[in-house]
Nucleic acid binder design. Structure first.
Length: 426
RNA sequence: GGAGAAUUGGCCGAGUGGCUUAAGGCGCACGCUUGGAAAGCGUGUAUACCUCAAAAGGGUAUCGAGGGUUCGAAUCCCUCAUUCUCCGCCA
C-alpha cells in the first residue's frame, strides 16, 4: 500500500497516477480523507503520549511513596492517575479509530503507475512494445485445437479431471505428463543458470502473507480458502516466496535477492466464462515457475528490464511466436507500478494467450511486508519487489501442441528433448 | 489428537510487581594501544511512531502475538501461535 507520507508530499503525482487507472476526481477525495485522518491521529497521539508520560512519572512516585511509608500521599497520587487513565482509554479508542480509518482507505488505493505506463483503460490501450514480425505458424487444413489434440494422443484428459475434482482441473497423462515435467525442469534449470535461488515453498499461506503481497484484501474471492485452518491456497508462488523477506531489514549489499520456485497455482476464476475458458486457456489449477527479485530502488527498473529479457529468451528457446505488451493504467493489477505481459500465439485457436506477467511493485508490497534495508545514511527504506512468471505452463503447452502439430505427430522443441526423452508426441 | 516444559535484544543469557533506564557475556562498529595483528582498554550498537524547520534533544510503544488485572507488568491472569519432550496416529 501507499505510504501516508507519500500521499502528503506527492499528492499530485499520486492523484495523476490514480487518474491513469480511471479514478474520478470524486474518488480521489479518499486521498484527502487519509490526510485528515492522519492529522487527527497525530494530534491524538501527541496528547496521549503526554498523558502516558505523566502516568509513568506518577506511578514511579507512588512506588517511592509506598517505600517511604507515605501511604496517604500515595493514595492521593493514585486518584490523580485514575483521572488520567480515563482520558487515556478515551484517547486510545480514538487513536485506533483513526488508524483503522487510515488503513481502510489505504487498502482501497492501488499502486501509483510508473511514468512509463501508457494511458488508457482497456486492454486495447496496452502498448505493444514488441510485436511478432516473423511469419506466424501456418498449419495444415487438418490442424486442430489443443483440446482435440489432447484426445487424439491421449495426453490430457479434461473429463477425467471433472470426475476427480470438477471443471478446470485437467489431468495430464503419458507423454503429456512427461512434457509437463520436462517444462518444469527446463524452466527451473534456466532460472538457476540465471542466478536465481531455487525455493520449494508452502502451497498454503496464512492471511498475513497474503496481505503482504497485496493479494488480500484485493483478490479475496479469487483464492481458495481453507476455513478450518484459516489458510489460503496460493494463486501464485509470488505470495510465499516474496514473504520470505517479510519483516526483515536487509543489508544493502545483499541486493538483489533472486528466488525462483516451481509451484502449482490455484485460482477460483470466479466470474469467468465463455470461449476463453476452453481447454487449457483458463484452469483452476496450473503449474508455474515464478521468478522473484528484491532490489534496491535505484536499480529495480533495470532489473525489470532484465527479467523481461530473460522471459523473452525462454520463449525464443521454445521457438514460440510471442509479443510483449506494456499494460496501460486501466489494465494494471492493483499492486503493480509497471507490468509487461507476454502473449504466445496459439495457432489452431488463432489466439494470443497470456503466459507471463512481469511486474515491478516498487514499494507497494514492501510497505505491507515491512521489507526494508539500511541506506548509506543508516536510514530504513523500503526495498523494491519484482516478480514474473517464467513461465506459466498450461498455456505454453496449449501453444506448443497446436503450433507444432504435423501429420506425423507433435514436434518437441529442441531444447526440451533432453528433458522429455522423446522428440515427438505420437 | 493428549500431557508437560518453554519463547527476553543480531546471538547466548539473568530477571517471581517499583532499586530494570532489560544485568552480564558474545558478536559487530569506531577509537586508544601496537612495527603489524591478537589480546587489553574505552565508546557505541533494535524497531516504529509523536514532537522539533532540520540536526541535537525529548516523549510513547514494543521482552512470541493479542486481551486483561494493577497507580505501576518481562514478571500475575486469559486466549492464541510456535518450539522442545513424552504418548497416540501416520507417508
Amino acid at each position: 500500500m501507499l505510504e501516508v507520507s507519500r500521499i502528503r508530499t506527492e499528492r499530485d503525482v499520486v492523484a495523476n497516477g490514480l487518474k491513469k487507472r480511471g479514478w474520478s476526481e470524486e474518488a480521489l477525495k479518499v486521498l484527502d480523507e487519509v490526510i485528515v485522518a492522519d492529522d487527527a491521529r497525530k494530534i491524538v497521539q501527541t496528547e496521549n503520549d503526554g498523558l502516558l508520560s505523566q502516568r509513568n512519572t506518577i506511578s514511579k512516585e507512588i512506588g517511592q511513596l509506598f517505600k517511604s511509608g507515605q501511604i496517604d500521599a500515595a493514595n492521593e497520587a493514585k486518584s490523580k492517575v485514575e483521572v488520567l487513565k480515563e482520558k487515556i482509554s478515551e484517547n486510545e479508542k480514538l487513536l485506533s479509530d483513526c488508524i483503522s480509518t487510515i488503513n481502510d482507505h489505504l487498502f482501497t488505493i492501488p499502486n501509483v503507475p510508473n511514468f512509463k505506463v501508457p494511458d488508457g483503460l482497456t486492454e486495447d490501450d496496452n502498448l505493444l512494445v514488441k510485436d511478432w514480425t516473423a511469419e506466424l505458424p501456418q498449419l495444415a487444413e487438418s490442424a486442430i485445437p489443443h483440446w482435440d489434440l489432447a484426445k487424439k494422443y491421449d495426453i490430457l484428459d479434461f473429463e477425467l479431471g471433472v470426475k476427480i475434482t470438477g471443471a478446470g482441473f485437467p489431468v495430464f497423462k503419458k507423454q503429456g505428463a512427461r512434457l509437463q515435467r520436462a517444462l518444469i525442469n527446463f524452466f527451473l534449470d534456466e532460472a538457476i543458470a540465471e542466478g536465481y535461488e531455487e525455493i520449494v515453498p508452502p502451497l498454503l499461506v496464512n492471511a498475513a502473507s497474503a496481505m503482504g503481497t497485496g493479494s488480500l484484501p484485493d483478490k479475496e474471492g479469487q483464492m481458495y480458502y481453507m476455513e478450518k485452518d484459516d489458510l489460503y491456497l496460493i494463486p501464485t508462488a509470488e505470495i510465499p516466496v516474496t514473504n520470505i523477506l517479510r519483516n526483515e531489514i536487509v543489508k544493502e549489499d545483499q541486493f538483489p535477492f533472486k528466488y525462483t520456485a516451481y509451484t502449482p497455482c490455484f485460482r477460483r476464476e470466479a466470474g469467468s466464462y465463455g470461449s476463453d475458458v476452453k481447454g487449457l486457456n483458463r484452469v483452476h489449477q496450473f503449474d508455474k515457475i515464478e521468478i522473484v527479485q528484491v532490489q534496491h530502488p535505484s536499480k529495480s527498473h533495470d532489473t525489470l528490464d532484465q527479467m523481461v529479457a530473460y522471459v523473452e529468451g525462454l520463449l525464443n528457446k521454445l521457438e514460440l511466436p510471442y509479443r510483449i505488451l506494456r499494460l496501460c493504467g486501466g489494465d494494471l493489477t492493483f499492486a503493480s507500478a509497471l507490468t509487461y505481459d507476454f502473449e504466445v500465439y496459439s495457432a489452431a485457436q488463432k489466439k494470443w494467450l497470456e503466459v507471463s506477467s512481469v511486474s515491478n511493485f516498487e514499494t507497494f508490497q514492501s510497505n505491507r511486508l515491512k521489507l526494508r534495508f539500511k541506506d548509506e545514511n543508516g536510514k530504513s527504506q523500503f526495498a523494491h519487489t519484482l516478480n514474473g512468471s517464467a513461465l506459466a505452463l498450461a498455456r505454453i503447452i496449449a501453444a506448443l501442441l497446436e503450433n507444432n502439430q504435423t501429420d506425423q505427430g507433435i514436434v518437441i522443441p529442441e531444447v526440451l528433448r533432453r528433458y522429455t526423452g522423446f522428440d515427438m508426441i505420437k
